[in-house]
Design a protein around this nucleic acid. Sequence first.
DNA 1: CCGACATTTCGAAGAATCCCGATTTGTCAT
DNA 2: ATGACAAATCGGGATTCTTCGAAATGTCGG
Lengths: 99, 99
Amino acid sequence: MVDALRALANPMRLQMLLWLRDPIRNFAGMETIADPLEVGVCVSHIQAKAGLAQSTVSAYMAELQRAGLVLATRVGKWTHYKRDEQRIAQFVAALGQTL
Amino acid sequence: MVDALRALANPMRLQMLLWLRDPIRNFAGMETIADPLEVGVCVSHIQAKAGLAQSTVSAYMAELQRAGLVLATRVGKWTHYKRDEQRIAQFVAALGQTL
DNA sequence: CCGACATTTCGAAGAATCCCGATTTGTCAT
DNA sequence: ATGACAAATCGGGATTCTTCGAAATGTCGG
């Protein structure tokens, strides 16, 4: 709960999670090795969009994952991240209840 | 939006906001100068409950206020804080929409 | 096995947060 | 006016966050 709030309290991390709502629109024109809707978006593409260092993006995605907001899938050398819609909805519902 | 998330990302500030959901139960036995449901709870009482320094509690409540989650009312020497239910509901709704 | 490339992990500088005690400000009663 | 008390502000030390570049790890093609 607090972990998710902390993860979302950073503008760039929040933005990244929002980009993943519509991967096709937000990562258009990037060569895709797998279906974005199925496995998600790879770190390189998120990095290109964010304009941060590669190591920073990696750490941020790992933090979103630890917070239970995204799921990671490795396809070859590429790690793909997609939203964990169930956990996100669960978080919003829980916040609405307790808050 | 991010301001509210940042304010809530601290366990004690979150706790304080939750205490204010039921002031009568959570601040029972404390001498009240005004109706807790009407004007809220004064800083001294929140401080006693939290066990933090007075200056810390003052700063934390101010931060919750800047984030639009609580309202402040001064009654005599006492500043009372109560939840801004409308803004809180608005925040939860907005989060559910954008997130 | 080796080079190339994606990602993670490590180490570090600067900024922000957390939390405190001390001081200042605001307000009331005398 | 002044003393007492609540709250806000100030100044600072410890910790965490933000972000980077460099190095290590994982994975594929040849």
